[in-house]
Design a protein around this nucleic acid. Sequence first.
DNA 1: CGCTTATGGATTGTTGACAAAATGGGCTAT
DNA 2: ATAGCCCATTTTGTCAACAATCCATAAGCG
Lengths: 225, 225
Amino acid sequence: MHATIQSQTRADDAFDCLQTAIVKGDLAPGEKIGEIELCARFNLTRGPLREALGRLESRGLLVRRPHAGVKVVSVSADELIELYHIRETMEGLAARQAAERMTDAEIADLYATLDSHETMIEQAHGQAYYQGEGDYDFHHRIATGSRNAKLAQMLLGDLYYMVRMYRYRLSTSAGRPHKALGEHRRIVEAIAQRDGELAEFLMRRHINAARKNIEQKIREGVLDI
Amino acid sequence: MHATIQSQTRADDAFDCLQTAIVKGDLAPGEKIGEIELCARFNLTRGPLREALGRLESRGLLVRRPHAGVKVVSVSADELIELYHIRETMEGLAARQAAERMTDAEIADLYATLDSHETMIEQAHGQAYYQGEGDYDFHHRIATGSRNAKLAQMLLGDLYYMVRMYRYRLSTSAGRPHKALGEHRRIVEAIAQRDGELAEFLMRRHINAARKNIEQKIREGVLDI
DNA sequence: CGCTTATGGATTGTTGACAAAATGGGCTAT
DNA sequence: ATAGCCCATTTTGTCAACAATCCATAAGCG
């Protein structure tokens, strides 16, 4: 999986590789990583790597102690809950602004996305897909639909990566995907009706439910963060 | 003003220098800046500088086009307004959590801060101070008081810097500092009473008022962003 | 026998030189 | 005269060697 795509610049590649490696869990939280080790792993030299490390640190995915190396951030259960509190307010705002500003074409796309998610769930009991990429896809579209550049940047560039870090090792509850899809559908309907207030309310309730789902898992001890 | 303090590492120094230079307006928005020029200006070499540039870009204070250099981000009037929408929701959350979690000592400090601000305003009609550092100080304490690490990081490390970029060239309205102080005082009272809901409501209204103040300035043409 | 302290090794931070890409100016052709 | 193209210069991206700092091991002392 050596990303030899050479997208734009070595540092960008290093950034992407490291980010996905962290999110996917290839680099475990708390794991201390040496620079030369990473260079060998991703076929890089230390210059671009260090630049990427700086960016990752600035985004909170790595912690760096001067002269002592970097390690992947490890988020406690409490901090994970806090992330959902932040999501609740920020994505509520995103939903409201999306309702006011999304184009009709974007809304149509949103509906199509929901339909594809529905078939995914029915076909393969696609919990994995839905919990993983599908849900991310939905929230991604709403964030960009808000036409609020900074809001989208903070959600897509900061929060989602940290959340996804743990979503990968989070088994989904039995009926949760189906319920979540219903909530998504109601949010889209509010957006289609250009009802910003309702969209905000529904989005907040949706994320609130997701948070409570996780809180219960933590209480059950399913989650060992 | 060559920061020769050598705090921890050259890259950290470069980061701090550049950040303050951007916030204070020494590097104007939209200004294209060359790496060698910056090196000369801050007595650095290109390695650490590039690392700092990467971090700044990741935080949205710079925009970088591959092989074409970096320039200071220029925020339009609309985007400035959007920043205040984000602040409204995020700082509302911060105020609520601060009301639930701040220690009594921190609250006492908050009161003391308010008193010092009041004397500042009375003494030197201290609009400049209050609008600049005083207001920042207040919101800073609330953000950290929320005990929500990511929330504080996003507010203190991302949003406030962008807002301060423009606050430096924003003249304050005549009676605004005094009114803002009153709003601050009510927020602190709600926090002292551990009334999270009220603190959130008051904080949101406070930032909403600040936003409307700016919107009016833009309409009046006082602001040429 | 335990704690402190020095030393060696390894790792990070920094530097200057090299290679690749883009902007700008000048030239030619229409 | 203007538009398009080509080339040179400047600037960015990358690399490998150098210096500074920390961690661990081991020796010395109380």
